[in-house]
Design a protein around this nucleic acid. Sequence first.
DNA 1: GAGTCGTGGGT
DNA 2: TACCCAAGACT
Length: 364
Amino acid sequence: MLTSPSFDRTDKLLAWYDRHHRILPWRVTPTEQMRGAKPDPYRVWLSEIMLQQTTVEAVKSYFTAFVERWPDIEAMAKASEDDILRAWAGLGYYSRARNLKKCADLVATQYSGKFPASTAALKELPGIGDYTSAAIAAIAFGEPAAVVDGNVERVISRLFAIDTPLPAAKTQIRALMGDMTPPARPGDFAQAMMDLGATICTPRRPACAICPINEGCKALGEHDPEQFPRKAPKAQKPVRTGAAFIAIADDGSILLRKRKGEGLLAGMTEVPGSGWTARIDGDASIEAAPFPAGWVASGVITHVFTHFELRLSVYSARNIARHTAEDGWWSAPEELGGEALPTVMKKAITAAIPGAFKQQAKRH
DNA sequence: GAGTCGTGGGT
DNA sequence: TACCCAAGACT
């Protein structure tokens, strides 16, 4: 008799997930769910925001620290945005942290501390778009939503050998994902597709021989799976220059200030510098100094952002009197690690003060 | 649809 | 080395 290929695939993938799912701090395993445990919408939401364009390994320690400090939405709503930004520092894409706080406030006040359960309502919340709304609805609330992230795009574009390049193919991919998603266990199915993409159907050298749904994979049968998904070539990134000034007081404190606006690194902490942007070079010379002092060239650091590369000339001066600074604040050496300093700023400070940030060993 | 928005790891 | 890429959202 005829069997439905899509049902076969869905069934096989769920069976594979039951045996081979990754163990992750935010995940409730199939076994735990069978014993009655349910995913906490707050933890699902927090993990999904952190995971946007960010590797699982990078997220783990941040997620653990966040849920320890803010165990529920009410706790996070009580926190200040600056507290959130300090805890988020280093994870990147800082608008996520600002939207995290906005969303926590909204859910706490407008939804009585309970996340709305549908993709449509979730998508209205700040920082929650097509992917995240579907992921939360499927994982936390059992809605059979089509969860499409980069992994799913890759898996489906290979299964069906989709020649349309991304992102134009996204509508078609979402429809196909919707067809495959089962009414039962939609959250596990979504996570199964993502685990498959992360561990088997990888961007390069996919392990097709051990793929649980390799049967009927069009890319495997007729093409080179590695050639999917098709993507438009990306533009090269320009190189920008600028200057950063490390003003050091007699007790070792460093002068910091807060970045304004809503764009790059908005709301984060920085050292004084020239006004570089993604599009415009800043003054890389000592003339950009915030005030006269015995500035000494302390090297040039390079930092690569998503769409441009920044070369910062770093200058430092010691024994600066505190009243010299007109704005900002002085941060003592032992407080520096707790500031909302993005990585590019930590690099600049380290160029002038090699021991400023003692790296703590990561446990694996 | 195309830009903007971080960072670290892998090849 | 110089790329590529990772559970995208927002404008």
